[in-house]
Design a protein around this nucleic acid. Structure first.
Lengths: 228, 228
DNA sequence: CAAATAGTGTCTCTGAGACAGTATGAG
DNA sequence: CTCATACTGTCTCAGAGACACTATTTG
């Protein structure tokens, strides 16, 4: 192995949630160089004998403070441009996590702070390394996957109403969906959601049925993004 | 950097083409240990100062013998399970390439032979490392992407007929599509294909119009896989 | 009661699939 | 001419979008 160039390998996480009707990403303020003081995606080095998904799960647990992530985690892509990290040749495997709204995040070992930042308000705030690019790729992936998978349920608690699920779509896509057609579509797509049998109580208006995520992994037909 | 575990980083390629009405993958027979003599995906180590896409393009050119790949190349995923390579801790970034039918491939530096192998005939032939898994992921990605992108054109030469394009879909999906509805769909989807203005000559039957790949990157509405 | 939210019914239009029919070449 | 392939027209049915209407709660 000595004849091959040595790399360091990290994992970085694009952790998204929907809170207060806004799509938010988990960012940390770096407490150590390089880019000390800058905002970045949470992440860290992969252990010498650690598999890549395990490293992603470990970092996610460290940053959110939760042992068991209830949402969804998938590989997003790998970024390894020479010079992307001033410390040397570092290749990072980026992951996309979709979580229901959680308690306040916990600062990890190398982070001075961690917080949920609304994506809409990011504006021109620049992130460390090439994390702007990684975040953009993660957002695009998340928006696209809501169309043809039931992943919107990953943003919801275990039991949710159709209106909650609709809010997720509207928030992530930034569109408005007709509540009546949405209801018919969601309840009519086989395996998307399964009724729990109970309803909400105490809210204004008619109580809503509670649902859990269904067994489907792909939506046929897909949810449509464009209100043509 | 000394405090972080050192990795080697490779690229591996799932190169697919359609030839003789079969979906085929480019495999090499390994000429050096480990797995000497076994079939594997083409690939190799990333250079010390080389970007990941550049490494993929370089390996593709080395294996196919062609300087400019006319098809499509995208990142597929990264695989880094400890123990996947007996030489040490090796993380591989896998790429998916879709190419038109090419002249016979050329054996690369570390390969004793390279050839197109029909995917249907692979059966239980086991590949080196975790390349079975990578190949399966690549096939699934390719099949899925034909639905909602114009990538089927990457399997065709620069100018092609609607029937050639239909053969690509039928070969990759293993289904039969109605030629008349397919024609209407392809020519009616904006940006999928653009007419060249010329026709084929010398074949049996009525000459067919020639088309080039159109400007669209996403198909709205998508091609449908299931003949329900 | 009014207001608010949940859920249903129904109409129209688009597009997929089935398939008859027409166009244009080779032999 | 026949045969083969390219292409067009038309019918039917499923599903998306628009939106009127009914149902069930709180205040």
């Amino acid at each position: 192995m000595a004849e091959y160039p040595p790399f360091a390998v990290t994992v970085d996480l694009v952790v998204l949630t929907v809170r207060a009707d806004e799509l938010a990403v988990l960012l940390v303020r770096r407490g150590v160089p390089p880019y000390e003081g800058a905002w970045a995606l949470p992440g860290g080095f992969v252990g010498a004998d650690e598999d890549l998904p395990d490293a992603a799960v470990r970092e996610l647990a460290e940053e959110t403070g939760l042992p068991e992530p209830a949402g969804h985690l998938e590989q997003l892509g790998t970024y390894g441009r020479p010079g992307r990290d001033p410390r040397g040749r570092v290749v990072t495997v980026a992951w996309l996590a979709l979580l229901p709204d959680l308690p306040a995040p916990v600062a990890g070992t190398d982070a001075a702070a961690a917080e949920w930042v609304p994506v809409a308000g990011l504006g021109r705030r620049r992130l460390a390394f090439d994390h702007d690019r990684i975040l953009a790729d993660g957002l695009e992936r998340a928006r696209a996957k809501l169309e043809y998978t039931p992943l919107a349920t990953a943003f919801c608690p275990a039991e949710f109403t159709v209106a909650q699920l609709r809010t997720v779509y509207e928030t992530v896509w930034g569109t408005h969906l007709d509540p009546r057609n949405f209801h018919r579509k969601v309840t009519g797509t086989p395996g998307f959601v399964t009724p729990v049998g109970r309803s909400t109580e105490g809210d204004r208006g008619r109580p809503a049925q509670l649902f859990r995520r269904g067994p489907a992994t792909l939506l046929h037909p897909p949810m449509l993004r464009q209100q043509r």
